[in-house]
Amino acid sequence: MPRQRPRPGLSLLGLGILALLLSGCGSWSWGRRSAGPVGWGAADRQDPALSGNGRVLASVVRRDGRDTVLLQEQPSGTVLPLRHFGRLQPHRSPSLSWNGRYLALLVQEGPERRVMIEDRATGRLHRLPLPGGLVPESLSLGSDGRRIAIAMEGDGRSRVQLYDLTALLEPDLPAGLPVRGAPGAAP
């Protein structure tokens, strides 16, 4: 009696269903871990952003009544220093590049809300000028640091605008050298 050859269509369908089943029908497949202690009591922690490689977590915590960005190595939770943002507050909407070299942030300066980027490798602070009359609400830095998307309010309308940062920032790519002081970097 001749053996029946398996039909490739059925095999592919079966593999697809198997992949779906394996990929999350049960909660067992979702690994979880804590973001690490905030360090000063049971503070709220908001606005999380991971670096592209997941080794740095930025979040906003309330410190002395002010929303302050907190940068932590992962998975240890070790707090990483920032040169400029300690004295410029409050903060919202942090965003990190691939290795965590660049931290982009909205900073309230008096009545103005500004977009700033700290380069953790050089210690330089970049202030991004925005068109007049538009107030930034949130931002997202591209993982390579080449672009930034900014949500803005103005003229009774919300909009998202993209900016090219290549003239301002060096790329922060997966193959790049780790930032000094960053997790895994040589002293």
Binding site: S138, S140, S158, V160, L162
Partner: peptide, 17 residues
């Protein structure tokens, strides 16, 4: 993006928005 209508909550990664 402007023509697509009011927009918010952007997330940028690689060549994707």
């Amino acid at each position: 993006l402007e023509a697509a209508g009011p927009a918010r909550a952007p997330f940028l990664s690689g060549d994707w928005l």
